[in-house]
Design a protein around this nucleic acid. Sequence first.
RNA 1: GGAGGGAUGGUCGAGUGGUUUAAGGCAGCGGUCUUGAAAACCGCCGGGGCUACGGCUCCCGUGGGUUCAAAUCCCACUCCCUCCGCCA
Length: 415
Amino acid sequence: MIDLKIIRENPELVKATCKKRGCDVDIDALAALDREHREALGKAEGLRAERNRLSKECQTNPDARVKVKDMKEELASLEERSAVLAKEIDEKLSWLPNLIDDAVPQGETDADNQEIRKVGKLPEFSFQPKDHQELGEILGIIDAARGAKVAQAGFYYWKGKGAQLCQALFYWTQMELIKRGFTLFMTPCVAKEHTLYGTGYLPFFADQTYALKNEDLALIGTSEQTLVGYHADEILEGEQLPLCYTAYTPCFRTESGSYGKASRGIFRVHQFHKVEQIIFCKPEDSVKYHEFCLENEEYLLQQLGLPYHVVNVCLGDMGAPGYRKFDIEAWFPGFNAYREVTSNTNLTDFQSGRLKIRYKDKDGGKGFVHTISATAVTDRVAIAILENYQQADGSVVIPEVLRPFTGFDKIEPAK
RNA sequence: GGAGGGAUGGUCGAGUGGUUUAAGGCAGCGGUCUUGAAAACCGCCGGGGCUACGGCUCCCGUGGGUUCAAAUCCCACUCCCUCCGCCA
C-alpha cells in the first residue's frame, strides 16, 4: 500500500509509477479527496471537542444540553462525510501498485527480463531428450488423466517413486532452510479475503483465486499469504528481526486467461506444491535479505545439479505489489529452454502497510517492516530433475543429495 | 451438533451512564542507593489521525442503536474457552 503521505509529499513520483505500471488511478483526484477528507475530519473533531466540553456542563447547566443537542445533526453529517471519503480513498489506494526500484528494467513480458548470470552446464544427450510429460507416462509417476477425472483438467497425481521424489525434494529443502535460520511452519491452506487483500493478491489477482462458497475464505495461492498474514496487526520487536519463515503447502490458482502458456505436462497447473521463504525485516535490510533468499535458491539448485540462469524481472512481468523481483529459470531439456522455477520479490512495505505489520526499536526507531517473498522449490523443480537427469531408456537418476530421502537412486520405466 | 461462560492496553485485572483524562499488579525502560547485584524507593511505560507542538480527537472483539454524555444500556454479528456428543 502506498502511504498517503507519499502522495501528499511527492505526487509526481506516484504518478510516474502509475504511468509505468499501467495503473489508471487519478492521483490528483486522490490527493483532492485526501484534502477534503482531512478537512471534514478536522471540522468533526473540533465540533466533537466542543461537544465534549459542553457535555461536562450538562449536569449543572440545563442550557448546555440544548446547545449540544443542536450540534448533533451537524456532527453526524460531518462524520458521515468523512467516512464516505475515507472509504473512497481506501478503494483507490488499494489499486495503487508499489513503487519501483531503479534497477528494474523496462519491458512488457518475460522476454524483456535481463539475464544476470548463467550457472551450471547444460546436459548433453546422445538421444532426443523427452519432456516430463512423456517421462511421467513412461515411468508411471505422473497421472494427469486421472487428475482430470477426479478433479478437473489442471490437477494431477504424482505416483509411486515420482511422489517419493517430490516428498524427498520438499523435505530436504525444508531441512536446508532450517539450517539457514528459517523457522518451519505448517499453515492453514485457506485464508480470508482480508489476508489476500493484505498480501496484495486482492484486488489485483482476484480472478486467480479459488473462493469457497458461502465462506469468507479462499484456497491459498501460496503460503506467502498465510505466513505474511501471520503477523497482521502486530508490532514486532526490532531486535528480533529478521524473522525468516518457511512452510510447505499446496498452492491453488485458477490460471484463468493463461491457456496455451507453456501448458504441456504439469508445468502450469491449478494446484502445485511449494516450499516458501518469507522474511520480515527492517526497511534498511530488505535489499540484503532479498539477496539472501536468492542465494538460498541458487544453493538449492546447485546442490541438485540443475543448470539455471537468474533474471532481473522487468516492469511488465512483475506484479503490482513488487518493488523488485528476481526469477530463476532452470534449464528444461524437454522444452529446450530456461523456464521459471523460483520467484523472489522484495515487496518493501506494500504488504506490511496493508496488514499493519510494524516494528519498534528500543532506541525509538519504528515503522512498517519490509517483507521478502521467495520460492525455495516447487513441483517444477521435480520436473526439471526428470528432464535433466533422464537416460536413453527413459529412466531417471536421482540427484545425490536427495538419495538419503528417496531411498533409491533411479526411477526405472514401468513395465 | 447440544449446553454454558467470556472478549478491557505487552500481560493479569478493576470498572454496570458523567471525580475514568481507562484504577491497580506484573513485566519492561531510566534513575537513586550499592564494590557489584538483589531488595527498596523515584520517574517513564498502548496504538492511530491531526497539530498553530500549547494540544485536540478516535480506539475497551466488530457493526448498528438509545443518550447532552456509552467500556458501562439495547440489538445483531464474529471470535475464544469449558463440558457433552461425533471424529482424522
